Amino acid sequence: MTGTITAERRQLTGLAYRLLGSMSDAEDVVQEAYGRWYALSGPQRDAIESPGAWLTTVAGRICLDLLGSARVRRESYVGEWLPEPLPGAAGALADPADRVTRDESITMAFLVVLESMTPAERVAFVLHDVFGYPFAEVGAVLGRTSAACRQLASSARRRVRAARAPAPARVSTEVVRAFKLAWEAGDIERLVGILDPEATVVADGGGLASAVRRPIEGGERVARYAVDLTGRIPALTLEETTVNGRPGLLARRGGAVVAVIAFEVAGDSVRRIWAVRNPEKLHRWQDG
């Protein structure tokens, strides 16, 4: 039984990260869920037919409570709030998905769409569409009927479909690389050609690092902002990397990572850029 319970940690962490957009919060949720499991008596645990489903229900309810309080906290957050970026393909979070592909469900673009949902929509959609839980089990988490959960997931699905389909990873890599080279060269004209005319930049400094407080909109404005930024920050270097399973960039200064930059590429253009500057969200990116 202990081995079976421990094996659930990967899926629970992936669930909580997708719901909360924070790995540290996700790890706390999983720890709390396990704490509640081990607080049960032996007979109580033996009476639970599916420990995995029990842990998922508990973790989902904890996340639902945290999502409600997070909305209040983010009202006082300095500037824009972005999900915590993770290196690579987010390893333990790359769980197989039923109707949402494994890679898509951990991208920054996908997580940002999740942020636009109500807590109940988000929980219903992630549990059902990403992890394949039936609506009866989703209802146990939300305290709602299966029909109500179906409606919540349908509403969330419309939000996801409204987002433009991402470009293939190969194309995204080429576009991000071209953006990097043009940025390093300070070539505004080339940057404008790579950026969608309606491109936007959103930066998250959290009041702990300098960052624009509001999104910058328009390809030319974004290009000029990027070139101006490197002019104001000497010795800034850029590296290609993978951010939540998609091509991105690391910005370093003096060897330390000062920004993780994620991209949404549509067609052969950069449509959105998310720059995470808040040092509290960059611990996993620092060497050593």
Results as ranks from 00 to 15, higher is better:
residue 191 L to H: 10
residue 175 V to N: 04
residue 225 Y to P: 04
residue 233 I to K: 06
residue 186 G to A: 04
residue 21 G to S: 06
residue 123 V to I: 10
residue 255 G to N: 09
residue 233 I to W: 10
residue 258 V to Y: 08
residue 135 F to D: 10
residue 39 A to Y: 03
residue 31 Q to P: 00
residue 166 P to G: 04
residue 26 A to C: 05
residue 104 E to G: 05
residue 148 A to Y: 05
residue 90 A to C: 10
residue 247 P to R: 04
residue 10 R to G: 00
residue 47 A to N: 13
residue 286 Q to L: 03
residue 127 L to F: 05
residue 9 R to T: 14
residue 284 R to K: 07
residue 225 Y to M: 11
residue 154 S to P: 01
residue 66 L to A: 06
residue 118 T to H: 04
residue 62 I to Y: 01
residue 257 V to F: 05
residue 130 V to K: 12
residue 20 L to V: 08
residue 112 V to I: 08
residue 34 Y to D: 03
residue 42 G to A: 11
residue 31 Q to S: 06
residue 218 G to L: 07
residue 13 T to P: 03
residue 157 R to D: 06
residue 128 H to T: 09
residue 165 A to I: 02
residue 245 G to F: 04
residue 3 G to L: 07
residue 175 V to D: 02
residue 51 P to W: 00
residue 114 L to N: 09
residue 158 R to L: 14
residue 80 E to K: 11
residue 273 I to W: 01
residue 274 W to R: 05
residue 255 G to D: 07
residue 124 A to T: 10
residue 157 R to H: 06
residue 95 D to N: 11
residue 277 R to L: 14
residue 132 G to V: 10
residue 90 A to T: 10
residue 69 S to T: 13
residue 97 A to T: 07
residue 4 T to K: 11
residue 168 P to D: 03
residue 210 S to C: 02
residue 278 N to D: 12
residue 64 L to G: 01
residue 13 T to K: 11
residue 53 A to N: 10
residue 212 V to R: 10
residue 196 D to P: 11
residue 255 G to K: 07
residue 44 Q to A: 15
residue 198 E to V: 09
residue 85 P to A: 05
residue 46 D to I: 01
residue 188 I to N: 05
residue 188 I to R: 15
residue 5 I to C: 06
residue 55 L to T: 00
residue 8 E to Q: 15
residue 225 Y to F: 15
residue 220 E to V: 13
residue 159 R to G: 12
residue 240 E to L: 15
residue 11 Q to A: 13
residue 25 D to E: 11
residue 148 A to S: 08
residue 126 V to L: 02
residue 242 T to C: 01
residue 131 F to I: 02
residue 25 D to C: 00
residue 79 G to A: 07
residue 218 G to S: 08
residue 133 Y to T: 01
residue 252 R to I: 00
residue 211 A to G: 12
residue 177 R to I: 00
residue 206 G to V: 12
residue 251 A to C: 09
residue 252 R to C: 02
residue 53 A to V: 15
residue 232 R to C: 03
residue 283 H to A: 12
residue 27 E to F: 05
residue 121 E to V: 11
residue 221 R to S: 13
residue 221 R to C: 01
residue 218 G to I: 09
residue 200 T to N: 03
residue 148 A to T: 13
residue 200 T to H: 02
residue 34 Y to T: 01
residue 122 R to I: 06
residue 271 R to I: 01
residue 194 I to N: 09
residue 277 R to F: 14
residue 135 F to K: 12
residue 228 D to E: 12
residue 57 T to K: 07
residue 193 G to A: 13
residue 35 G to V: 01
residue 48 I to R: 15
residue 236 L to Y: 06
residue 217 E to M: 08
residue 42 G to R: 14
residue 3 G to R: 14
residue 64 L to C: 02
residue 277 R to T: 06
residue 94 A to K: 08
residue 129 D to N: 08
